[in-house]
Design a protein around this nucleic acid. Sequence first.
DNA 1: CTTAGTATAGTAATAGTTATCAATAAGCTT
DNA 2: AAGCTTATTGATAACTATTACTATACTAAG
Lengths: 127, 127
Amino acid sequence: MRNTEQKSLILEVLQTHKDHPTADQVYNEVREKLPKISLGTVYRNLEKLSSAGIIMKLEIGGGQKRFDPNPMGHSHFRCLSCSSVEDLPHDFKIDLPEIPDGNRVVLGTTLEYYGYCEECAATRQLH
Amino acid sequence: MRNTEQKSLILEVLQTHKDHPTADQVYNEVREKLPKISLGTVYRNLEKLSSAGIIMKLEIGGGQKRFDPNPMGHSHFRCLSCSSVEDLPHDFKIDLPEIPDGNRVVLGTTLEYYGYCEECAATRQLH
DNA sequence: CTTAGTATAGTAATAGTTATCAATAAGCTT
DNA sequence: AAGCTTATTGATAACTATTACTATACTAAG
């Protein structure tokens, strides 16, 4: 994997995020510094970075894929109203049960909470 | 919600499934009995049935949405190779931790296991 | 410097899903 | 059972997110 200005900037932009932007959000931010970059380049590099284990691709509910600067396993909260995705503090331990049937190969798990985020929950109260 | 031949057949087809077909799989099966049905009708009815809580829409990793005849909460196993999605037997209890921050409204959780299904795991052994 | 291999921008193509709309069918109400 | 109202349908267009293609530009090694 060759290092290019585009790739470094994409990674840098993603790593300033506490949340989990979509490819086009990253694209728009990167364009501020590199206006000629193409959306395809953003997709390609996000893909490469995630298959190299540097970032994490979230194939989570809702339309678009999202990208997480932190590749370590942790769970997410997805807002059904504004579609934002937040990390959940994972100081607590989850003991996931073993799957009974031993012939599958289990590589990992995804735990997702969904509902309304703090902001949207507050807005809904007003109605 | 008005009852139509199309809707009943879509539900019936889905309920004969142990797995979790995509909209176009349902479409193809329904077409055997109702050749003039349109794909839009299938999407529309799957959407209605799921927002009525009769079935469940799975917005799970991988390209397409899948539909589950069983709306009760249970977890899924997704095969990274053949993309199939199976129910996991849920006789075991999972105690999911409470989310610390009380200002979110948590409506539910999704727990997904991924890896290689029995069949694909066996094939991979051969290589 | 040449060359071979990558990466890029720009654009076209694809896949999955949703929206539009005139025609039809359901399900009251009498 | 006939008429009325409104939801639903099939057909198709539109849309969104993502991937593929292609000619050009860059990089590192010999």
